[in-house]
């Protein structure tokens, strides 16, 4: 016999006055007791999960609020458009803004093609086996290498061995190496998300493998690839350790004129002001101001890329 909703609520109301056969009421009692417990568990879990989500959102909000409160007073037109003056206690941070923008841009220009090409090889061409597993292991471990190790690698390889010196290009290459695993990983995910039916349809029409990838798979996975690029770029732009040995210097009043020039960069500038500046206390607001600019720059780049991505998504629909 089915326990319908009506029977259930009837029994519920006239509890203690069993009108139904005994075994039914036993079942109903069990169901009811269980129901109460389940409801409680649901409630507790829901609250916990929501709490976790709120803490996350709050953290970002607090960081931004804290930065605004301490740094907003430093943000003037002069701060954004002038070079540092009087041992970096006055003036602006223009060389740092330009330096970080160029580093991020350069890193992504280098890393994106290599990363996407690697992901295409791994996901579309490579046959499963020892070689593929080894490459994958390498990439996964590369993602876990601390950023300071990338800095030392950049110093040893690009700066010293390839004789590029402490320069914009050394920094870009080091940051590119750092963001490669992120880009490869997310590109692979994006390629995996393209249904095989697209590939089959394309091959079935007499397209070659490359035509299939170029005309169908890549366009369909472009939004996902862009997400990877955004993540890689954000990570690269905010890093300090990889550029402190390879690209950034304490102070240079000139904007870079060639890719072999030394540069100033926002994260490194913050680090310098906060640990080795001529007057750490007096420049506190400049440190916050610089951090605020860095956050704004990274968020700005993210936003731009997200808008771009959603446009492509719309076009695909």
């Amino acid at each position: 016999m089915d326990i319908t909703k009506d029977q259930y609520s009837e029994e519920h109301q006239s509890a203690g006055k069993p009108v139904k056969p005994k075994n039914i009421s036993v079942i109903q009692k069990a169901v009811e007791a269980r129901h109460r417990r389940r409801k409680l568990v649901e409630q507790v879990l829901f609250t916990t999960f929501r709490g976790a989500a709120v803490i996350n959102g709050l953290a970002l909000f607090i960081i931004i609020f804290f930065m605004l409160k301490n740094g907003l007073s430093a943000i003037t037109w002069e701060f954004l458009s002038d070079v540092p003056r009087e041992s970096m206690t006055k003036g602006g941070i223009l060389p740092c803004i330009v330096g970080t923008a160029l580093l991020g841009l350069g890193a992504i220009v280098i890393a994106l093609p290599i990363g996407v090409a690697s992901a295409i090889y791994l996901n579309e061409y490579a046959k499963p086996g020892l070689i593929l597993r080894t490459i994958r292991l390498g990439i996964n471990n590369l993602a876990g290498v601390p950023s300071v190790v990338f800095g030392l690698f950049g110093l040893a390889f690009f700066v010293t061995y390839l004789k590029m010196g402490v320069s914009l290009v050394s920094g870009c290459l080091t940051l590119a190496a750092l963001s490669l695993p992120v880009i490869i990983g997310s590109t692979e995910e994006a390629l995996k998300a393209v249904p095989d039916t697209y590939r089959e349809a394309s091959l079935g029409l007499g397209a070659t493998k490359w035509q299939t990838i170029y005309r169908v798979v890549l366009p369909a996975s472009l939004p996902g690839i862009l997400t990877g690029a955004i993540l890689g770029l954000s990570r690269a732009a905010g890093e300090t350790a990889p550029i402190m040995f390879t690209a950034a210097v304490f102070f240079t009043p000139d904007l870079p004129g060639s890719i072999f020039d030394e540069i100033m960069a926002l994260p490194y500038h913050i680090y310098v002001l906060a640990t080795a500046g001529t007057n750490i206390e007096a420049t506190r607001h400049l440190q916050y101001g610089t951090a605020l600019v860095l956050i704004a720059l990274v968020l700005g780049m993210n936003m731009a890329a997200i808008v771009w991505r959603s446009r492509i998504r719309k076009k695909l629909k």
């Binding site: 079935g204 029409l205 007499g206």
Partner: peptide, 17 residues
């Protein structure tokens, strides 16, 4: 070339985006 001469229509409609 073979697949151009022998076309295929699949179980689930799979137009490209």
């Amino acid at each position: 070339m073979l697949r151009r001469r022998v076309g295929m229509v699949f179980q689930k409609p799979n137009p490209f985006p």
